[in-house]
Write a protein that binds this DNA or RNA. Structure first.
Lengths: 325, 325
DNA sequence: CACCGAGCCGAAAATATCTTTCATACGTGA
DNA sequence: TCACGTATGAAAGATATTTTCGGCTCGGTG
């Protein structure tokens, strides 16, 4: 991929960019205007989400922006470049990656964010969990972090993509969900719920079986891949197969620019909280994934309400007798 | 007074904001440092106050700005000039009169104002999810509910019981976790994480196998039962067996007085949020259970830090090569 | 009624800022 | 070590903002 093409791609980096027809998945030509919605308050989350796909210099810029929105809003592109020890070009590139047309718009968003922070409650300092933290602190910090993750996820979720995924799933003949490790549990969670409202859904965590099943899919079916890293081969492979068989494909990932996205008709972005030794990434990504999956499920339940409501009631009934008095 | 002098005077009309370099004399500095809070409507008030001293053209500009901050923030100086049927110069003069160094800064302030107004609107998340809720509302409501669940859980969690459970688990020869259905996934989640830090843990969702394994437990082992209802026979049974064999038993349940509690040395209470047709109880109980399980895990990781840290690092390394570039 | 001056206004020049291009340096894998 | 692709900043190019400057209107005046 040449530098030129790469830059153009960066320009349409937003998840929404994937929305186009599947035919254009690899051959995007024109830069559509106004695809990516400017992020409101989700900027800090976005920075974390996209940080891994950033270069070092860009990360410095992103960090500065996330740490002091108000301060950065007061700076020109040149000023921010100097502050971060980089160039104007890098600042603009970072702004693009974050989903804005250019630095000017990022700056406006920054001003908005600063105003919100100032009017709202304090930015809320989060210290990491330490080895010697008392158990009560652990509880408080974990609860706070997971709440934060939920807020970030909700703010960063593209409702258009979500809506499209819901529509596809609600009408699907069959829904296959791929996930490995911690994401596998999320896949199962989604599957369990979909089954409860009478849909046909399967979760696969065995890569071979997943591919074997993916081959059976066709137009009208839905395949969903869940991977935090966006680059888990064992999950990408079945999605690719499903994609090529004509099924509608959905990726739930923390790296909307990751490899998995290229085979996904719809990309749902989960947020990434910072991790530490005692707080594995799996923890917050799981929280984020579950929220996305819940939204997906409720959306589908809405669309299939006629069928879903009695099915839910029936499954509830069926379990009642298994409870001890 | 000459034309020239007049314009300069207008330029200095604002408060001390002009003092420093233009970059540092941001809009925030102007609006902020006073006694009054950064009132959202400060700008509208200022417009009214200063309107009498404005010329006709400037009033048109000021009015446009006051009526639609968000819209104007999206416009360039030229655009706003056209919109109001005036010129760029007039727009700049208006910005000056309102106390900003130039239009650029007014625009930034406008963006901030817009963001505040935006965030002020509560999405009415207090209501239940309805069948015809737009997808964006579903996201907001679910996120809010899960956040609430987390807060409730953290508040209601008995840290003494939790600490005792942590101590037992950290020293355990072996840890068995029982859970069925949605709780089964939580059990697996906990098990996966414990395995990652080098502990011996098993999740059981097959009632028969669970009992079979429980028989093997003895003092020094830990058995954990996860059940929202507190009365799931298939989960209580193995816990009872473990309890009778002398293992330390823990119950993670939403009904601390339920049947499961009678065989539990330590009871960790999860919170129960309201449910509805479209929001099965499993959803919030799962969120709650996961938080408890996370706390348990982090607590154990703290206690076994010497072993946990390298184990976590190792498992991370081992997975790295499974990611596509 | 013609004239005058004060101040308003916008076109266009001047400046600042943002964006793009391009050559170079850097790191990485063969 | 070499070759290749990528990241990066300097500088050119494009936009946006600010300033300048002269025409214009309007109210007062001889």
């Amino acid at each position: 991929m040449t530098q030129e093409v790469k830059e153009i791609f960066a320009n349409r980096a937003g998840p929404a960019a994937q929305a186009g027809s599947r035919a254009s998945a690899g051959a995007g030509a024109h830069v559509g205007p106004g695809i990516a919605p400017p992020a409101p308050a989700a900027l800090a989350a976005k920075v974390r989400t996209l940080a891994p796909s950033m270069t070092r210099s860009m990360q410095r810029v992103a960090e500065a922006v996330a740490n002091d929105p108000a301060g950065c809003a007061a700076l020109t592109v040149t000023g921010l470049g100097e502050l971060t020890g980089t160039s104007e070009a890098t600042v603009v590139r970072t702004a693009r990656l974050l989903g804005y047309p250019g630095y000017r718009d990022l700056r406006l968003a920054l001003a908005g964010l600063a105003a919100q922070q100032q009017s709202g409650r304090a930015p809320a300092i989060t210290t990491d969990i330490a080895v010697d933290d008392p158990i009560a602190d652990v509880v408080a910090k974990l609860a706070y972090d997971e709440q934060q993750t939920l807020a970030d996820t909700a703010a960063g979720l593209d409702t258009v993509q979500l809506g499209a995924a819901v529509t596809a799933a609600a009408a699907a003949r069959r829904i296959d969900v791929y996930g490995i490790g911690a994401s596998g549990l999320v896949a199962q969670d989604l599957t369990q719920k979909l089954l409860r409202i009478g849909l046909i859904a399967h979760a696969h965590s065995d890569p071979h079986l997943a591919v074997t099943n993916a081959v059976q899919l066709r137009a009208g079916d839905v395949a969903i891949a869940i991977t935090h890293s966006g680059s888990t081969g064992d999950v990408i492979e079945p999605l690719r197969v499903a994609f090529e068989r004509g099924a509608t494909t959905v990726a739930i990932t923390g790296r909307p620019n990751g490899a998995v996205a290229q085979y996904a008709d719809h990309v749902l972005t989960t947020s990434t909280a910072r991790e530490s030794e005692l707080r594995p990434a799996a923890m917050s990504s799981r929280t984020s994934q579950l929220l996305v999956v819940d939204c997906l499920f409720v959306g589908v339940a809405q669309r299939t309400y006629e069928m879903a409501a009695p099915a839910l009631a029936a499954s509830y009934e069926a379990l009642a007798h298994r409870h001890r008095r």
